[in-house]
């Protein structure tokens, strides 16, 4: 039985990021970049404008490099489907400080709302669980989202969540697009002057 999908992705991402504290954020390409920017630009956000399938592994490299900071990847269902193997790679490393949230609209939103495999029932949270994530959640309701949010920032093991959201288009809210700029301002926010030594 399929639950009715009522969550609004812009609200979901805004609510998640409101409680980020000093969390470092990596987005997937396209819509999740715009969602995070709409919630408020921040130099501690690394917006991935391409590299489809790479957001999770960028998150892993960052989480391993900064074990005392929380790292949050916010990406799309299409994006993560291109890098499913990385869920296995992350589970094996078992970083205590990495959380991955998939904004699952069951569509390739950016390219014209074509169905992704999740529309046909592919269960991303089940895949994460089977890979070995100790925390893996399926989120359909506002109440489930409220339970999820603090766990993203406090769980002591890799955390995965697939949040089902409506397949709606939203106005694009563009962050800066120059990759070198995004990299340098992120590193400066994390490392201070050391970023340029």
């Amino acid at each position: 039985m399929k639950n009715e999908i009522t969550l609004d992705r812009r609200e979901v991402v805004a609510q998640i990021l409101k409680q980020r504290g000093d969390t470092l954020v990596v987005t997937g390409l396209g819509s999740t970049c715009w969602d995070a920017t709409a919630a408020g630009d921040d130099p501690r956000n690394f917006y991935v404008w391409g590299a489809m399938g790479g957001a999770t592994m960028i998150g892993l490299g960052l989480a391993l490099a900064q074990p005392t900071r929380r790292v949050l990847v916010i990406t799309g269902d299409g994006e993560i489907l291109m890098g499913l193997g990385s869920l296995a790679t992350v589970a094996v490393q078992h970083p205590a400080n990495l959380s991955i949230v998939v904004i699952d609209n069951e569509r390739y939103g950016e390219t014209g709302m074509q169905d992704t495999h999740t529309r046909s029932g592919v269960d991303l949270a089940g895949i994460a669980e089977a890979a070995g994530f100790p925390y893996s959640a399926r989120v359909h309701t506002g109440q489930e989202l409220q339970t999820l949010i603090p766990s993203l920032y406090t769980n002591d093991g890799p955390t995965f969540a697939a949040v089902k959201v409506m397949a709606r288009s939203y106005p694009t809210v563009l962050p800066a697009r120059d990759g070198t700029y995004l990299k340098n301002r992120f590193r400066e926010a994390v490392l201070g002057k050391k970023a340029f030594e």
Binding site: G54, M57, I58, G61, L62, L64, A65, F186, R187
Partner: peptide, 10 residues
């Protein structure tokens, strides 16, 4: 992708 993340984290 991992090495990009590593560099972001120093």
């Amino acid at each position: 992708a991992q090495l990009a993340g590593a560099w972001l984290g120093g």
